[in-house]
């Protein structure tokens, strides 16, 4: 079995690690780190019988991840303070939402940038308030700035001058140029408070966002982690309401995301759950999700290239993509 299969098996069933040899542990640790799942795995294997060096590694990784989550939640507080003055509540997305709401997906999860959702008609105010509070543009290039503002679902990334942390301010979950359009106001309406001035999406909408982010946007880099999030979120949703799957599919249909959500359900059941009947195309996705070798390096370059190309096709129509790539190519040339 490959290192990536061992990783998936360990997350699904911690007891599967009992028979691993030393070299298999080395490979498993490397691929888990590459997929940003090392501390997640550490939490999952808490209580399992582990070689002493592995146990020491996981203890340190879990403590480190916990500390980094404290930093991430401090960023949440900083954003809340900046936006509370203009009366815009902070709706958290992804990692910081899971941590703030204490969801199972947060255990050991690496949290990078702070992702928040705000009403589109407040975007200008939000931008001004954040800049006033010390955030600044990462990309100052006029084309990038114009592109983000005209076509993307988020502002160009901002970074805080003193704390060196990024914030992504979303007004939607998918680019405006994407094939499917999500009614962001419907998401905001159902957002749930987790603290004063801080909200997260409703449990069903968290699943919608996770599936859309993973399968209707991007090239599936880090997909195994996103799929683990999805798997954990299904567990949380199921614990709240037995009819979660029907609600999820109804909501997905409303947003035109049935295809992505159904695929996310099949992939997460196949890799992390009780199994699923896979379609032929699902196998391609799994090949992409597991594209890493025993030395921890990305593998299957053609599959990766295919998904990279697909991500651009998802993001914008062909003529627009051609113009964008031409423009980016010329920018890269003039920089050299």
């Amino acid at each position: 079995m490959s290192a990536m299969r061992h990783l998936v098996a360990a997350l699904r069933n911690p007891a599967s690690t009992a028979t691993l040899r030393g070299d298999q542990w080395s490979a498993l640790i490397s691929v888990a780190r590459g997929e940003m799942l090392l501390a997640t795995l550490g939490h999952r294997l808490a209580g399992a019988a582990l070689p002493s060096r592995v146990a020491a590694l996981f203890a340190a990784e879990c403590a480190y991840a916990r500390q980094m989550q404290r930093h991430a939640l401090w960023e949440v507080e900083m954003a809340r303070r900046a936006l509370t003055q203009i009366g815009v509540p902070v709706i958290l997305l992804k990692g910081s939402a899971y941590a703030a709401a204490g969801l199972s997906a947060a255990a050991g999860r690496h949290i990078g940038d702070l992702d928040i959702l705000v009403p589109r008609d407040r975007l200008t105010d939000v931008e001004a308030a954040l800049i006033d509070a010390g955030w600044d543009w990462v990309k100052n290039d006029p084309y990038d700035q114009a592109y983000y503002r005209q076509w993307m679902h988020e502002l160009p990334p901002l970074i805080h001058g003193a704390r060196d942390r990024m914030i992504d301010v979303h007004h939607n979950l998918l680019p405006l140029t994407a094939r499917h359009h999500i009614d962001a106001a419907a998401l905001i309406d159902r957002a749930q408070p987790v603290a004063d001035g801080v909200l997260t999406l409703d449990p069903i909408d968290r699943l919608i966002h996770c599936a859309a982010h993973m399968l209707a946007d991007g090239d599936l880099a880090g997909g195994l982690r996103n799929l683990w999030d999805f798997h954990c979120l299904t567990g949380d949703a199921a614990a709240l309401d037995g009819a979660w799957q029907a609600q999820l599919l109804a909501r997905a249909q409303g947003f035109g995301l049935t295809h992505s959500v159904r695929r996310a359900l099949r992939l997460s059941a196949a890799l992390y759950g009780d199994g699923a009947v896979l379609r032929l195309t699902d196998r391609l996705f799994i090949r992409r999700l597991l594209a890493r070798d025993a030395m921890g390096r990305p593998s299957h370059p053609l599959t990766q290239l295919g998904f990279y190309t697909r991500s651009h096709g998802l993001r914008m129509p062909p003529a627009m993509l051609a113009r964008h790539l031409w423009r980016k190519w010329r920018m890269a040339r003039t920089k050299i």
Binding site: R21, G22, S26, S52, R53, V54
Partner: peptide, 9 residues
């Protein structure tokens, strides 16, 4: 490495 387990690659 002890038990053959390397934690960095």
């Amino acid at each position: 490495p002890d038990d053959g387990v390397a934690s960095l690659t």
